[in-house]
Design a protein around this nucleic acid. Sequence first.
DNA 1: GTATTTGTTGTTGC
DNA 2: TGCAACAACAAATA
Length: 273
Amino acid sequence: MPELAEAEFFRKRWHQAAAGQRILAVRLHPAAKIFRGSNPAAIRRALAGAKFTGSEARAKQMLFRFSGGVSLGVHLGMSGELRVEPGNYVAQKHDHLVLDTRKHALVFIDPRMFGRVQFHRGVTPPWWTKIAPAILSDAFTVEAVATFLRRRARAPIKAVLLMQERFPGVGNWMADEILWRAAIHPKRRAGSLRPAEVRALWRECRRVCRLALDTIAGRGKYLPPDLNAHIPKNWLFRHRWEAGGRCPRTGAPLARATVGGRTTCWSPARQKL
DNA sequence: GTATTTGTTGTTGC
DNA sequence: TGCAACAACAAATA
């Protein structure tokens, strides 16, 4: 599920329910693979009785901070999700971590367990600061994109957009959305893009990030009721999975193929090889 | 039973 | 060395 904006959506969901609240109990399965590399018993000891003091989202990851100077990093993998349930919530099969506050249960669900929970004693884990500069930051320049594309010259541009070290937070649907808006065919070699196309790609990376964050995670205090509640019909997003889907701009049928190892959707009428 | 999945990492080979 | 391709991880759904 989670790419840039979904991570922000889930962070905000937990934050709004529990910021400033005390964690009264921690429920977890010590053997669950999502705890790989961490010590589940240490998580339980450190969080039980601690206060939820703050949170942050970067790329596809979230960081939740607690009193006592400990923090919990969360990556949702392919099928992870964070929910807020009522206080008397009974854990289900794939609920690997439940934090109980006075009013709510904060639940981490992940059927496929590609996600991960990382515990850290300290306000900010070292790996958190190593996440690449955000696409919406000043460090994400058209020159930086051009340089990266030159280094990955022979790879299809779709595969390059999925590389987190330069496009943090971009996942499969965002990459397709960006290429569709920039009118670039996903199979084009990264090194074959002309300067005007690199600029268009850079601009649409920023636009899609901004629109996705506003649309999916809401602005200010507002949090949409669910993830896709407000995604407009003129986004590729709304048509990419439907059988017989058509390009919202040209009306022509959409194409699908595996590019860079992932199912890719594009509009042949707009995106030419 | 087969194929598919909004992600990442380790391995292999060029 | 650096880069590109691919399998593996795991479980639900069609």
